[in-house]
Computed example of a mutant assay.
Amino acid sequence: MFGLDLRKGIIAFLIIIGVYGILFSFAGVDQLSAAIKSADLTLLCSVIGAIFGWLIACSMALRTILNALDVDISRMRGFFVLVGAIFFNNITPFGQAGGEPVTARLISQSTDSEYETGLAAITSFDTLNFIPSTFFAVSGVGYLFLTSTIHGILRIAAIAVVILAVAVPSFLFVGWQRRDRFTQIIVYRLTPVLKIASRKLPWVSPISESGMKGRIERFVKSIERVATDRYSLGLSLSYSTLGWLLLILGLWITFRAIGHAIPISVVLFAVPIASIAGVTPLPGGAGAIEGVLIALLTVLLPTLGVQLITTAVIIFRGLSYWIPVLLGGAVTSLYLR
């Protein structure tokens, strides 16, 4: 499956099921069942609608980037590629770091483009997608500073958000300014490793230093094309921002569906921060994202109680995790056939 071992995929799903089993027992199966049965069906359908809206907005952001790279892709195919990308991210460790190399291959094969173009597209998409999440998280931190006293886990989360908001753009800027130097380092360090791997692993193809340098340069040139296309950058960023708003709205509606209205500022702060936990070794950040969400919301909404918050998070993450996984898995299977 695009370089993924079926056995590893099965293990990943078993881990995810185990994680959700722990969350179910923590929330209480009876309370979870009662909350779902008594939930407002219209609002639950609205949550599903918000999740599909998030997926569509993100697919349009990715499609815009691909168009900037002269890769012609329809809206429907762009949606399929996006849910395929989320599928791979959700079944591989370390979030995007684990899934994006496979996603790049999916893009290249489904659009008849070079692998480096697909990798540049999905890398650019991830970078742009980080901007609105940081903006929303920083906005939530500012609101909390103005309206309440921040201490304990909230102080740690707030400091982490501020550090990320400064460190990540700075790192990207420095890396971009020194991209030629980094290209030389990667070629010098990685080529010998691939040569050794090609002798021991049949699926790794040997590559020369000139070949490696050429592929990296094609990747960098594709990134440069996206970075200099201001219209595509602005449009893709707008779609990404809309996607984040819809995802945040999904959690807010989830609480209303089970009979509890919470401030929108709380989820505006919690959802982007929890998404950072997707970089953990667990497949798709399963368990880590839920844990961070539950911890933050429990501190921010102490009157609701941890069991009710856990119930809401299970419902929200159950939908936002499994809808793209099931769609992406089906799309990937059909495409392989």
Rank of each mutant, 00 (worst) to 15 (best):
F13K: 07
I15L: 12
I16V: 15
G18Q: 05
I22Y: 14
S25W: 13
Q31M: 13
L32H: 05
S38K: 13
C45M: 15
I48G: 14
I48H: 05
F52Y: 13
A57V: 08
A57Q: 08
S59G: 09
L66S: 07
L69F: 09
S74N: 04
R75H: 10
V83S: 05
F87V: 08
F88Q: 11
N89D: 13
N90L: 07
G95W: 00
G99F: 07
G99K: 07
P101V: 08
V102E: 02
V102W: 11
L106Q: 03
T111F: 03
I122E: 11
S124D: 02
S124Y: 03
T127C: 02
N129T: 02
I131K: 08
F136G: 07
L146I: 09
H151Y: 12
H151L: 09
G152V: 01
L154A: 05
A158K: 02
I159N: 07
A165Y: 08
V168F: 10
S170D: 02
G175A: 01
T191K: 06
V193W: 12
K195W: 01
A197Y: 01
R199T: 11
K200W: 13
E209T: 13
S210P: 00
G211K: 03
G214Q: 12
R218W: 00
R218Q: 13
V220K: 13
R225G: 12
L237N: 10
L242E: 00
W244M: 10
W244H: 15
L247G: 05
L249I: 06
G250A: 15
T254Y: 06
I262T: 14
P263A: 05
I273G: 04
S275T: 12
I276F: 14
V279G: 01
V279S: 10
P281I: 06
P281C: 06
L282R: 02
L282H: 02
P283A: 08
P283M: 08
G285F: 07
A286Y: 12
A286V: 11
A286I: 04
V292I: 15
L297F: 10
L300K: 06
T303E: 15
L304D: 05
L304V: 01
G305C: 11
L308E: 11
I309P: 07
A312Q: 10
G318Q: 05
Y321W: 12
W322C: 03
G329A: 00
A330L: 15
L334N: 00
